[in-house]
Design a protein around this nucleic acid. Structure first.
Lengths: 209, 209, 209, 209
DNA sequence: CCTTAATCGAGACGGTACGTCATGTCTTCAG
DNA sequence: CTGAAGACATGACGTACCGTCTCGATTAAGG
C-alpha cells in the first residue's frame, strides 16, 4: 500500500502537528466513490476529478490520503468486502464447507450488487490494484484455508501425503472458476457441500470390477 | 460487431473502389497490440494512440477497421489462440492429463498468459469481448473436457453418480486458479498429473483396515 | 521566442504533413485574450484555461502554438503595438520629433486603452516576457533612433564628440519617464518638440555674464 | 491600508489582550521576502506560501498582518529604501551630479535594483503600491531635484526660459531609463557627470565662427 | 497563581489553474 | 478511396498556491 495511506496499518502515531485530517472528508470520498459505482458508473470512468466533485471535496484532499486511483480503490473494495467467515471448528468437512460457502455468497452477491460487479471486473487491468487486492483480501482467506487443512491433516481427517497448497486449490478452484471466471454459471445452494464431499471422496469408482 | 469491422462476418464484398486496405497495416496493428501486451503493458494503459505509434500507423487507420479498443481486442485474441490439443484416447487419466497440460502450457507461455490475464480482466466489463472469448476459446475446450469425462464414465473409469459439469470444474478449476488468479505461483512440470491423480483418488485417508 | 511559435520568424516551411493548424483557432485565441484584457481582466488573472474557454478552444491548441502564458502574451502585445513611425527624412530635428511623438502617442493611448494599460503594467513581473518585449518592440525602435542620430552626426547636425547611445537616451529618456513611469504626468501636444529643441540647445544660459 | 495592518497608522492601541505579535516573525517575513527578490525570483512567483516557507513562519501569521501580497510589498519597500543624498551646495552642476549618482548607485546595488524593477512592474496594476512608493520615495527626490534647479535658475546657472519640470526629466530620465527599463545596460562610473554635462551643453555642434 | 485570550508553526480544507496526455473526429497531402 | 500524419475540442491527470480553518503549544496581561 502507498505510504500516503495508513489504512489498515497500525501506525505508531507521530506527534500529530497541524490541523488533523477530517474524518468527514474521508467518509465523503469513500461514500462518493461507492455511490458512483452503485449507480453503474464503469470503473474506467471513475476519475479522481469526478469523485472529488461528487464528494464535495478538493482533489488534493484525496491525493493526501491515497497516492492514486488504484490505492483509493483498494480501500473502496475493502469497505465493500464481506467479513472473514467464522469457522465452526467441528471438523475438517464443516470448516471447508463454511469457507466455500463464503466464496459462493460473494459470487452470488457480485451478481446482484453493481458495486462488486464493477470492481471485480476491472481489477485485473491494473497490476498494482490486483496485487493490493491479493495481499489484502485474497491472502488472508488463503491462509485461513491452509490452516484448516493443516489441522485436518493433524487430526487424520486428510491424507498425510498430500501437499496442502494443492489441496487448497482443489477445494477453492472449482468454486472460484464458477464464481469469478464463468459468470453465466449458476451457484446453487448445496454446491459447497457437493464440492467438498466429492473432492474428499475422489472420482474413482468405489468398487473396482 | 461494429459496422466498421467486417472480420468474421462474410460481407458480400462491395464494389471496392479506390485504394484497397493494406493487409500490412492490419497485421502491424494486431502484432503491435500483441507485442505491447506481451511486454507487460497493463490493458488500462493500452491506448489506441500507443498502439498506432507502436505499429507505425495512423489512428484513423485503426478506427476505420475497429470501432474501439474492445473490438480490436476480440481480433487480437482470435489471432493468438493456440490449437486444440490432440487427445491420446488411451484412457480417462491420460486424456485429462493432456487437457490440463495444454492449460498449463498456456499459462507458462508469456504470450498466452498475458492474453489470459487481460481477457479475464476485461471479461465482465465487456460482454462483447467475453462472448467472443467464450465462443472461440472456452466453449470448445469445455466440450472436449466433458466428452472425455462422459467416455470415462461409460468406461467405468469415473464414478457414475457424479455430475460431469462439476467433475470438469474439479479438474480444470485448480489449474485455472493458479494460472490466472495467482500469477505469482509457478506451474511446475508434473502439476497436471498431480491434480488429475489427486482428484481421482480423493483426499480422505485410506481407511486403515 | 519559443520554438513552438514561428510568429514573426520566416520559417523555411517544412513539407507540412498532417492537418494544418487552423488560422481560425489562432485568431480566436488572440482575439479572446485581447477581449478579456479590454474588459479589464488583470493580466495576473488571465489564465490559459480562461482564454481557452473564452476562445472556445482546447488548451492543447494554445500550447501547440505557444509554450506558455508569456510567449502568448508577447504576440498579444505585438498585435496591439502601433506600427513603426515613418520618418520624414527632412533633417535630424524632424526625425527625432516624429520618433518621440510616436512614443507620446503610445503613452496617451495606454491611458485610454485598458489593453495597453494592463499589458504594460504587469509586463516586467516576468523576466521572459520583458525580454521578449525588449527584443521585439523596444530594440527596433532603439535601432531606428540610433540610425537617425548617426545620420545627423554625419550631416553635422549633431556634435561629433557625443556618444550616440547616450544621445539616444537623452531624447528618449524624458519621454519614457513621463509616459511609462509616471502615469499621473500629462503628455501635452508639443512636448516632443519641446524635448528635442531643449536637448539640442542645452540648458546653459546663452550669454555668460 | 488594510484593517489587518496598522503599519504607519498611529492606532490608539486597544487594550491588547492575549499574546502579543512577535516582532521576530515580522522581521523574518520582511527579510524573507526581500531575500527572495534579491535572489532574482520574479514577483509573479513570489507566492505567500513561498515567503512563509522561506521565513519559517505560518501562512496565517502573514495574513494576520497584511491582507495580501500588495500590502506586504508596500512595507518591504519602506524597509529597504536608502537615505536621501546630501547635497554639496557648491553649484548646480555638482548638486545634479550627486542626485544622479544616487540614482546610479541604486541601480547598481542588487537590493535596490530588484526592488526598483519590481515596483515598476507592479506599479500600474496596483494603485495602492504605486501611491505608497510615490509618496515615500519618488516625491522627496523629485522635490529635491526641483529645488536644485530652481536655485540654479536664480543663480543664472540655468536658462531662465526653461520649464523646471521638463529640465528635471531631462536629467533624471536618461538615468532611470537605463537603470529600470534596460537592465542589461551597464551604469559605468562617470555616467552621472556625462549626462549632466551633455544636457547642460546641448547636442548642437558649436557654430563655426 | 491561574485563567483568558490572542499568538505561534503546522498543515488540512475546498478551490482554481497549471502543463501533459489520451480520447475519438476531422482535415490535409501523397499513393 | 486509402495511407500517415497530425490538429481539433474535450476532459482527466497529479502538482502548486490560493486564502481560510483548525489543531496543540506559547506567551503575556488581568483577575
Amino acid at each position: 500500500m502507498s505510504p500516503a495511506s495508513n489504512h489498515g496499518t497500525a501506525a505508531p502515531a507521530p506527534p500529530a502537528r497541524g490541523r488533523p485530517r477530517s474524518e468527514a472528508a474521508e467518509r465523503a470520498i469513500l461514500d462518493g466513490a461507492m455511490k458512483l459505482l452503485e449507480d453503474g458508473v464503469p470503473l474506467a470512468e471513475l476519475s479522481i476529478e469526478r469523485i472529488a466533485r461528487t464528494a464535495g471535496v478538493g482533489k488534493a484532499t484525496i491525493y493526501r490520503r491515497w497516492s492514486g486511483k488504484e490505492e483509493l480503490f483498494v480501500d473502496v473494495i475493502r469497505a465493500a468486502e464481506p467479513e472473514d467467515p467464522e469457522l465452526p471448528g467441528t471438523g475438517l468437512r464443516d470448516d471447508l464447507v463454511v469457507l466455500l460457502e463464503s466464496l459462493r455468497q460473494r459470487g452470488v452477491a457480485s451478481r446482484s450488487s453493481a458495486l462488486l460487479h464493477n470492481v471485480h471486473a476491472q481489477m485485473k487491468s491494473s497490476p498494482k490494484l490486483w496485487a493490493a487486492y491479493q495481499a489484502n483480501v485474497i491472502a488472508p482467506r488463503r491462509r485461513l484455508g491452509l490452516e484448516v487443512l493443516r489441522r485436518g491433516q493433524l487430526n487424520g481427517e486428510l491424507r498425510a501425503d498430500v501437499d496442502l497448497e494443492l489441496a487448497n486449490d482443489l477445494f477453492v478452484g472449482p468454486m472460484l472458476v464458477r464464481a469469478v471466471m464463468r459468470p453465466e454459471s449458476d451457484l446453487p445452494e448445496g454446491l459447497s457441500e457437493e464440492i467438498v464431499d466429492t473432492v474428499l471422496a475422489g472420482l474413482r469408482p468405489v468398487s473396482p470390477p
